[in-house]
Simulated assay, not measured.
Amino acid sequence: MTTFTAAEASILLFKTRKVEVIRMRELLLLIVCLTFALPTASQIRPVEKDERPTGVNVTPAPERFPAKYEGGMFGYGKREDGTIRIDDINERIVFYAKDGKEKFSLSFDDMQMIYPESRSVTSNTGNIVRNIPLPGSMLGGLIKEKWRYIIINFNDADADVRGAVSFKLSSKELLESVIHTVGKKAGMTQRGDAYYRPRQQKSDT
């Protein structure tokens, strides 16, 4: 068994505490850096404005593209990943599940409005950092990412009801191209970054 004199024990204790102080300073420096860096990099921002005229030079949407169904269609309450196809021949969009089976469709004529929506949520990285049992880990909640959705208001002619179906898309560019392409194909009128179907004026007889 190793024994230490009082002087040696004091020196060893001093060195141990010195190492602890250095580590604590490093941790505090990291927390300070995160405190000033994260809010600036990940603060919630308003919807980005595009200075170019809306609809100009927007790339046409692909015939098929991945999308996550978020809800809104009568009889289909489960959220799921799949694929949307723009069916020009039958004038509709079709949502397919992962297995390739058609789930439902929405005709161009039933569409009343189509527009984008974005939400800022805590990213997966932020959730991981937030759950680390260390001082300052709560700052992980400030690490955000933006999710983009396409919202389609429609009239269901068969059920004689109105609804709004939403899909999550992978990027801003895809969102813009889908809204522009579908809005044009459905014969709707553009207003900003959205398309709508004007109310028909009743003629006096």
Score class of each variant (00 low, 15 high):
1 M>F: 12
2 T>G: 09
2 T>Q: 14
3 T>N: 11
4 F>K: 12
4 F>Q: 13
7 A>Q: 13
7 A>F: 02
8 E>V: 09
9 A>P: 00
9 A>C: 08
10 S>C: 07
13 L>F: 10
14 F>Q: 10
17 R>F: 11
18 K>L: 15
19 V>E: 08
20 E>M: 10
21 V>G: 08
24 M>L: 15
26 E>D: 12
27 L>M: 14
28 L>Y: 14
30 L>K: 11
31 I>S: 04
31 I>N: 07
34 L>Y: 06
36 F>C: 13
36 F>I: 15
37 A>C: 13
38 L>A: 09
38 L>C: 05
39 P>H: 09
40 T>P: 05
43 Q>A: 05
43 Q>D: 14
44 I>C: 04
45 R>F: 02
46 P>W: 04
47 V>P: 03
48 E>Q: 10
48 E>K: 12
51 E>F: 10
53 P>H: 05
55 G>T: 00
59 T>N: 08
61 A>K: 04
62 P>L: 06
63 E>L: 09
64 R>F: 09
65 F>P: 08
66 P>W: 02
66 P>M: 01
67 A>I: 06
67 A>D: 01
69 Y>I: 06
70 E>P: 06
73 M>F: 12
76 Y>R: 02
79 R>S: 15
79 R>A: 11
80 E>I: 11
80 E>R: 15
86 I>C: 02
86 I>P: 02
89 I>P: 05
92 R>D: 00
93 I>W: 05
97 A>W: 04
97 A>E: 09
99 D>N: 11
99 D>C: 01
100 G>M: 03
100 G>V: 06
101 K>D: 13
105 S>L: 01
107 S>C: 02
108 F>R: 03
113 M>N: 03
116 P>E: 04
119 R>C: 06
120 S>W: 15
121 V>Q: 07
121 V>T: 09
122 T>D: 02
122 T>E: 05
122 T>Y: 02
123 S>E: 05
123 S>G: 04
123 S>K: 07
124 N>C: 05
125 T>G: 15
125 T>L: 15
128 I>S: 05
129 V>W: 03
132 I>L: 12
133 P>Q: 03
134 L>W: 15
135 P>K: 07
135 P>V: 03
135 P>E: 07
136 G>F: 10
137 S>M: 00
138 M>K: 14
142 L>N: 03
142 L>F: 06
144 K>H: 15
145 E>A: 12
145 E>V: 12
147 W>N: 12
148 R>S: 08
149 Y>Q: 10
149 Y>S: 11
150 I>C: 00
151 I>W: 08
151 I>K: 10
152 I>G: 00
153 N>T: 05
153 N>R: 14
154 F>R: 03
154 F>T: 04
154 F>L: 00
155 N>T: 09
155 N>I: 07
160 D>S: 14
163 G>E: 00
165 V>D: 01
165 V>L: 06
167 F>K: 00
168 K>Q: 15
172 K>G: 09
173 E>W: 06
174 L>F: 10
175 L>P: 00
177 S>M: 04
177 S>G: 10
179 I>A: 04
180 H>V: 13
180 H>N: 14
182 V>T: 01
186 A>E: 00
186 A>K: 01
190 Q>D: 01
193 D>F: 07
200 Q>S: 13
201 Q>Y: 10
203 S>W: 02
204 D>F: 09
205 T>W: 09
